[in-house]
Amino acid sequence: MSPIVAVCVCSDYFEVDEGGELCLKPGTMGPRLMVTYKEPGTFQFRKTDYPWAARVYVRVQGGGGGSAGANAAANQCTVRPGGAGGGYAESLLNLSALGAVETVVVGPGGTAGTGNNPGGAGGTSSFGGFVVAQGGDGGTAAQGSGTAPDAVQGPAGPFAGSGQWASGGGAGGGGIRLSGTNGLSGAGGESHLGHGGLARASEGPGTAPRGYGGGAGGALSYGAAENGMEGGNGIVIVWVLG
């Protein structure tokens, strides 16, 4: 006769289902899958795609602001501030709190200004109505062409959105003109998941941010037409927990 073997298991993590099989309890397995929405647009998160899930940890980054174009007159200078960085929010949510389908929105980075036009604002990113992060404002085109010393202020960062933890984005950096041949544009605002474009002292277009949600750096013109730069796109990251 075979010996009887008894096995003890921890009831905190295991349970016996209706078929008599020993199973892990839902919600005790931690992160099992990361779902990322990187492209700007609208998507759907369906609970039925993850029948084993118990919770989701959602991270939402708003889009960064674009920077303005600069076109100074010959032998003059125009500097532009940077765009603001997008806001950020996160939440840990029970799957039971979600609807059957939740809408996911990834905010685009703000558009680049051309000529002497401002940059566009970054778009808001969200996961349903639970987690929302606002986009950053675009850089302004307030400074005219000239040679006299002058400073321009960058846009303020967006306010915090909604979530269990939320933060506004970084302000766009200001620019300064010292003369018709010497100036410094503004750096782009920082974001939680990215970095703003750099400030520039040489003539050229706005500078690109890195990562997600950073503001574009400002353009600088000593007489040539220079475009601004697009802000960084947002992103939504969903960790699915078993």
Rank of each mutant, 00 (worst) to 15 (best):
P158K: 00
G186Q: 01
T181E: 09
A148N: 14
G161N: 05
G194S: 12
G170S: 02
G196D: 06
S162D: 11
A141T: 06
S185V: 12
G196P: 06
A151D: 12
A166E: 03
R200C: 10
G169I: 05
G170P: 01
G196S: 09
G146Q: 00
G197Q: 04
G173D: 04
L193K: 05
H195T: 13
R177W: 03
G206C: 10
E190F: 15
H192D: 06
D137E: 07
G204E: 06
Q143G: 04
G172R: 04
G157T: 00
G154C: 08
G183Y: 00
G175A: 11
G139V: 00
T140D: 12
Q134M: 12
S145K: 03
T181H: 12
L198M: 13
L184G: 06
A142P: 01
S202M: 15
A151S: 13
G180S: 05
P149Q: 13
Q164N: 10
Q164D: 09
V152Y: 00
S202D: 14
W165D: 12
P149N: 12
A151H: 06
S167N: 10
A201T: 15
L198E: 09
A187C: 11
A171R: 05
A148L: 15
G157W: 00
L184A: 14
G163F: 04
T140A: 12
G204I: 08
G189C: 05
G135Y: 01
G135W: 01
D150K: 11
A156N: 12
G144R: 08
S145L: 05
G154M: 02
P149K: 07
S179I: 05
Q143E: 14
A187T: 12
H192A: 15
G173V: 07
S145W: 01
V152K: 00
G197K: 04
G138H: 02
G169V: 08
G194W: 02
G204F: 05
P205D: 11
T147R: 07
A142Y: 11
G163I: 05
A141L: 06
G138L: 06
I176W: 11
V152E: 03
E203Q: 15
T147S: 14
A142H: 09
F159V: 10
G189E: 01
A156C: 06
G170L: 01
P205S: 13
G170A: 05
G204S: 09
R177E: 03
A148I: 14
A187E: 08
G204Q: 07
S191E: 06
G186E: 01
G174Q: 08
L184E: 09
A142G: 05
G144L: 14
G204P: 03
G186Y: 01
T147C: 07
R177M: 06
G136I: 04
G139K: 01
S202R: 14
G136F: 02
A187Q: 13
